[in-house]
Design a binder for these strands. Sequence first.
DNA 1: GTCTATAAGTCGATAGAC
DNA 2: GTCTATCGACTTATAGAC
Lengths: 189, 189
Amino acid sequence: MTKKELIKLKAARLFRLKGYKATSMRDIAQEVGMEAASLYNHISNKQELLAELMMHIAEIFTEGMENILQSSLSPREKLERLIGLHIRYTVEKPNAVAIITSEWVHLEEPTLKEYLLLRNSYEKNISKIIQDGIAQKQFAEVDLEITVFSILSTLRWLYSWYHQQENINPVELEQRMIQSLLDGVNIRN
Amino acid sequence: MTKKELIKLKAARLFRLKGYKATSMRDIAQEVGMEAASLYNHISNKQELLAELMMHIAEIFTEGMENILQSSLSPREKLERLIGLHIRYTVEKPNAVAIITSEWVHLEEPTLKEYLLLRNSYEKNISKIIQDGIAQKQFAEVDLEITVFSILSTLRWLYSWYHQQENINPVELEQRMIQSLLDGVNIRN
DNA sequence: GTCTATAAGTCGATAGAC
DNA sequence: GTCTATCGACTTATAGAC
């Protein structure tokens, strides 16, 4: 791991715990074990840290979504994969997931615009999957807007719930979440 | 409206838009139409603004919950009332609802402890309602933890979705949300 | 009750020695 | 590549004139 990667790792944890604005370069430096001035030999400024952390995880989710969309899975299976995607990265990179959910307001232009573009298209893609599922009669005729919002809220804020659950198995969690979220969407028998 | 109420009103909007840490006393003063120093004739410090805004809305939700619990409604009706409660205050006080959801991390002790106490008991009460509904066979045997988390996520983050919907009728929204959230919980026919 | 002036501290970021 | 020293701007909050 390079020094820059270490700095980003420590910054991510602090941004998550205290928020971007409340985290100082001195805070980050202390975690890394150097003086604040030395950070600037590895990064150009504080905003760069936020931008790189955010765009990296945003691109991971975007790629995950593209893989799901390009597959020949059914809408139900696509939704299951999407839930799996969120659980995997919530467990693997909880800090990054927390930051992308809560700290994006502190992004400056032009990165803010780039992020919002990815975010919008991500939401539209979820909407499309559910719409397809309804059209193919795999899902009940639910309220599209509210269902998308509800699923997205649950997936986005999973990190805040997950980190206080200690002995939970990610694989088991995935099964429980799939069942819980899809039973509200799934066609009744 | 007193000057203090006006200050809290303007502060709430800025805390929501920019976050507590990124909002300066000068920002608030400018919105109110006075100098930053003059604010201190009406409030004692910045943290007091956050604490009063947060605890006021927290108590509103706590009282709403108590009214629901003390009623003789069925679990399903209680959950419907709870959804109505969140929609009402999301529409009436979107800034306060946003702040309680996103800015509570910046609360200082002892208010932080008080807030977390209310928050914990609120979550336990939702859990109790759903548990009762399952016991009375009004709800399906859903995964309790995940269902509570999912409903709470959806209700808490409603403000972020609502403020970008322009022509939505709160009464209609309530019906749509009740249907959407409860169909995932409700027993299948 | 509002203002100007300012205290006392923190912020992000840079300069330059080593 | 890390340090010390420091700049200049900004922060919350107070003192005191009016």
